Simulated scan of single mutants.
Amino acid sequence: MTTSTPSSTLSLLPTPTHLPVVHHMVTIKLTLDNYLLWKAQIVPYLRGQHLFGFLDDSRPAPPPTINITTDEISKIQPNPEFQSWIIQDQMILSALISSLSENVLAYVVQCTTSREVWLTLERMFTAHSRARVMNIHYQLSTLKKGDSSIADYFHKFTGLIATLAAINKPLTDEEQISFLLSGLGSEFESFVTMVQMRTDLLSIEALYGHLLSHELHMAQAQPKVDLTLAGAHVASRGVSSSRGNRGGRFSNTSHTGSTSFSSGQRTNRGRSRGRGSSTNGSRPTCQVCGKFGHTALTCYHRFDNSYSSDSNMQALLAMPQPPVVGRRLIR
């Protein structure tokens, strides 16, 4: 037998909250590697719609039926609040499922309520989240500014801090400042000392402003080089170097020339000595009789076969002989 709900009761049913299309609000779908980012989007989204109580069980499901007593007659009827709760919960369930990737969706296909989906995902990624928290702490302890700017360094730092806050593992202000200062380079030693000596605790935002000012001050304190003067200096050095090289070549050439000239003089002198033994300077020496003043062609002893002397033979043997082609002498 079907029992109908009175129209007066239907008018008192709470109106379910219609959720906007979730993919317009949650841009990152849940995968096996980005649970923290996905949760950081889903939680404020549902809290803004006053619906996170369906997930943390602060708004549990009402009983499905109620007893209605009229004229001392008790009747069991469906609970209209339960029906309204079911409608709202299924909307949340649909929003959650639409934000899951296909790989993760396979783990929650058997879930029938939004809380079941939430708890299943939380159990899946709890161990992963714990490892992720440890990894973030390690990244914070090893994060260094290096050659990057203060803005880039602070952006990386705040990204890690925000990730910890999104998984309900936020750092205190003292811990944040300690991690931030420990990653600065040696050029910020005076700044770190100044911050540590302060009696009041700076906020992260105020500390960031001071770091930017300190970085700007260091940049202005560095000596500037006039590129125009530097270019002129390099050009003048190049001209001087080229002149020096040319001077070196001239010196080498002169030196080489003098060396060649000296060598030529020595060679000529040697040749003069050689000719001197046969010609005595400008006076020729006879190859037959060995006397100065004439040559063998004009010597009257050249046809005298009986003429010979030991000194003449020694002079003849000491003289270099010209090459002979056929029977003709080459002079």
Rank of each mutant, 00 (worst) to 15 (best):
M1N: 10
T2G: 07
T5I: 15
S7C: 02
S11Y: 02
L13G: 04
T17Q: 07
P20L: 10
M25Q: 11
T27R: 06
T27C: 03
T31F: 01
D33G: 08
L36V: 13
Q41E: 14
G53R: 01
F54E: 05
D56H: 01
P60L: 08
P62V: 08
P63I: 05
K75P: 01
I76S: 11
I86S: 07
I86P: 01
I87V: 08
Q90M: 11
M91W: 00
I92P: 04
L96W: 00
I97M: 06
N103T: 15
V104F: 02
C111H: 06
E116V: 06
F125D: 11
R132V: 03
M134Q: 07
S141D: 10
T142W: 00
D147Y: 01
F154R: 04
L171A: 04
T172P: 00
Q176N: 06
F179W: 02
L180C: 13
E187S: 15
M194G: 12
V195N: 04
S203R: 05
S203E: 14
G209N: 15
H210D: 14
H214F: 11
H214N: 14
H217L: 09
H233L: 12
R237C: 08
G244R: 14
N245H: 09
S254I: 07
T256C: 04
S258K: 09
Q265E: 12
G270E: 13
S272E: 14
S277D: 12
P284F: 05
G290W: 02
H294M: 08
S311D: 15
Q321M: 10
P323R: 11
V324G: 08
R328E: 15
